[in-house]
Design a protein around this nucleic acid. Structure first.
Lengths: 181, 181
DNA sequence: GTCTATATTCCGATAGAC
DNA sequence: GTCTATCGGAATATAGAC
């Protein structure tokens, strides 16, 4: 029921994905909301509190997606995962993990912990999916499910980053190739 | 013959790869050299001048590597590429492309252009290697050489980022899997 | 409870000393 | 040619007004 708070989180989420955590300031958010930058501190005393909340939101969104896909067959779940960030393409956004990991060592400890938990949640889910799909002869790949999950996640994360730099077909090429397992 | 200038570039290179471009300041460099932060401005009037130089150095180093590998067979060249950043593991460094791409839109235009040229140089070389290796039946993969180059480069870039976050076997797993083509 | 005026620190950059 | 003293502005954050 706190609209300002929610809007702050949403704007911070967009800013992190478009320019990164260290590059945005409270002033960037307050300008859009027509309030003073210090007003943000009422909702989030320190910038890291806001950062933690943004990561938590992303983890909740991922968990919600996964739950929503639960009744789909393995291949369709993989496709959903691989197309999950298609909406980021036009704005050249990075995913939250790709946006935060280069400056990981500058993040406060609570943000680091949240980010690690998010990455582990994604990799655990993906590993499990690949394991079940491989066992059921839906997927075929030589690596272990865990290593394959590493590789798919890594390729997708970078695909968004490379899309921002090259502004060509790199994202779609990688995404579509990863579907062929 | 300008040692201070070279040291500045080397320190900036390390800082970008460990904490990112926006997170480091001239003070970080000047402290290590026991000079005042403003002294850096003599060598690099603006921070972006230093950023451009760091990227240029990385491109020169890559070109030098490639030249050095030129007489090796295709598979060995691939192995050299995949192990090129092994030395970054212990310090949890990102490669220059992975370090800069999340904040790409905050970078000055000359840095953006340099970074694009570096990425294209890497992808062009890798595509060419994969094409020759596939044609010579040294490598075997279903994708086009260009798309395969996208995928290998992306997986390696993220592998370094994930190594920083997870501090586990993710980098080596991805690297070794990519050798099996 | 919600937001503003203000403080403090640090940043990149300029002007000028040696 | 090399470096320092210093500026103007922006960042995060606190204290307190309403």
């Amino acid at each position: 029921m706190n609209d300002t708070r929610t809007e702050i989180i949403n704007i911070a989420n967009e800013l992190i994905k478009s320019i990164g955590y260290n590059a945005f300031s409270y002033a960037d958010i307050s300008k859009k909301l027509n309030i003073k930058n210090a007003a943000i501190h009422y909702y989030f005393p320190s910038k890291s509190d806001l950062g933690v909340e943004v990561i938590k939101r992303n983890r909740a969104a991922f968990n919600s997606n996964v739950e929503f896909w639960a009744n789909l067959d393995y291949r369709q779940q993989l496709v959903r995962y691989l197309t999950m960030h298609d909406g980021f393409l036009d704005n050249y956004w990075a995913c939250i993990v790709g946006a935060l990991s280069p400056s990981f060592d500058t993040l406060p400890e609570n943000m680091q912990t949240e980010l690690q938990q998010l990455v582990n949640a994604i990799l655990d889910w993906l590993t499990d999916l690949l394991e079940k799909g491989k066992g059921g002869n839906v997927f075929s790949f030589p690596e272990s499910p865990k290593v394959k999950a590493y590789m798919i996640h890594s390729a997708m994360l970078s695909a968004l980053l490379m899309n921002r730099i090259l502004k060509n077909d790199v994202y779609k090429s990688i995404r579509d190739s990863l579907m062929n397992i």
